[in-house]
Design a protein around this nucleic acid. Sequence first.
RNA 1: GGCCUCAUAGUUCAAGGGAUAGAAUAGAAGUUUCCUAAACUUUAGAUCCAGGUUCGAGUCCUGGUGAGGCCA
Length: 593
Amino acid sequence: MDIKEVLGAKVKETVNELYGVALPSVEFQPTRKDFEGDITIVVFPMLRTIKGNPVEIGTRIGHYLQENVAEVSKFNVVKGFLNLVISDAHYLEFFNTIRNVTDFGHADPNSKDAMIVEYSSPNTNKPLHLGHIRNILLGYSVSKILKAAGHKVYKTQIINDRGIHICKSMLAWRKFGGGETPESSGLKGDHLVGKYYVAYDKTYKEEVAGLISYGKDKEVAEKEAPILLEAQEMLRKWEAGDEETVALWATMNGWVYQGFNETYRNLGVDFDKLYYESNTYLLGREVVNDGLEKGVFFKKNDGSVWIDLTDEGLDEKIVLRADGTAVYMTQDIGTAIQRVKDFPDINGMVYTVGNEQDYHFKVLFIILKKLGYSWAEKLYHLSYGMVDLPSGKMKSREGTVVDADDLITNMEQTAEEISEELGKLEDYSEDEKKGLYHIIGLGALKYYILKVDPKKRILFNPEESVDFQGNTGPFIQYTYARIQSILRKAEHIGVSTVLDLTLTLHEKEKELLKHIQLFPEKIQEAADSYSPALIANYTYDLVKEFNSFYQQVSILGETDEEKRSFRVLLSKKVGEVIQSAFKLLGIEVPDRM
RNA sequence: GGCCUCAUAGUUCAAGGGAUAGAAUAGAAGUUUCCUAAACUUUAGAUCCAGGUUCGAGUCCUGGUGAGGCCA
């Protein structure tokens, strides 16, 4: 039983007895380090219910708790803060109940609604970059966190595999490619296709410049460049189902998927179901007609269909063009409904999409609610800020985009350089080393990105991102590795698995136990706010707490056998919590480094 | 023009309306006969501006300023 629940109930009971009033709630916080105590009850909010002096009230409650609650061994009152010292026995008892629990902190599986988490959802005309990485890591981590909080989770993405941008790559490949394939060129499929997208853009710009030099207006030139007209023609052919065009489209998309899959594998992420826009772009139109009948939408004179959201403080938004073709909104409405059909057990969806689409999703969710879908209440736009570079915004035109694959390789190399310098792995085989550098390099990258609150912009400094000291992934991995080293040595020494519940706890041991105790709450909080950053920062705090413990007490060198055993068991548990927390971030931990 | 985010040490990040605003990095100074020094200890340094609500505001409200985004 959670200590806060016990105390909360007791405090209410106490107040009722002493003052004859019912307290609506009790506010707790961890006691600040400069005061004696483990848990603090804030008295101020009680003043609304009980009239009087906060110090007096705190003292009376403190006395009562000390006498009647076994867990409370001491107390002190500072201003309106009632600091309680919790007995060692309570923490030992807590430790005893969790020490053999393998998924400590996780809620019962499938105890909550099933959900869909969508992330990645790239275009298929160029390789993934740093912006996608933030999206992918966030989405994957949130899916793990929701799962740990008790939800069943389906991971999905919608691949933007059709449209003018793909036609541009296809056209350029046909014009300049000379039949080049990933095999013949040795290029990763997505990079190959991206190369032709760039080639298209170059030609396009030359043509526009040419037209302008012949006296055309810039705007006109941009619309009339021959290569653009050709690409548009190609798109029309694709939509008409032209065999050759569709075949080329399928081939080139196939290359891109191979490339993407390699990147996903490197990042350690996966999906349960994929949606392709080429299959879904026609969805949603019937729903619009439906909504017209219900009066949710209205038709303008030109035949286009709109929704009026002025009563929501927004404006009017188009949902179907005058020529009857779908806009993004139409598709998204259709896709959402399709997903509920595909996964009838779900009640809730998370869309991991950048914050430039905040408005779009706000509107989408309102429309779905107005259409009367009950699950529309449980949609969440996991919106995240852009990734900036020290030089400013990433711009593909200026070549400042950080490529995902290059970045991963870089991180692995840095991990290798640092490890080689320290030279602790002489007995490792090349393969083992390679695996380890991958774990460390990706740990650095993932942690660097996930520790930041999703809604904030990230400044990605390539030099700092490979920093392995301080609040970083490798620092935490290193602590884990040290713990494993202790455990290996402990095996030789022999450690009792019986826990002596009458031990007197060292201050640092208590701190560690308090921190471990927070893990389940943190998972819940992270799930409620869809924020891996909470887990990252929690893990870092735990690691710092462990390092401090490690520095101050002897673990294997402790001569009292019972104390030694306890410390080994405690270290082991800390390792397990680190591992478990990092799993929620999609980060692996090494046994040695 | 309308709407939406963000603003905290030199820098990168924290802080469910609660105590003296925490870390990390960069700077200064220390700690290795002992369980991994990728560690630890000490030191200095910050809430964009002006009002308001509250016993109490980095946090909530209003108005500015600055950065970014969305919609025509």
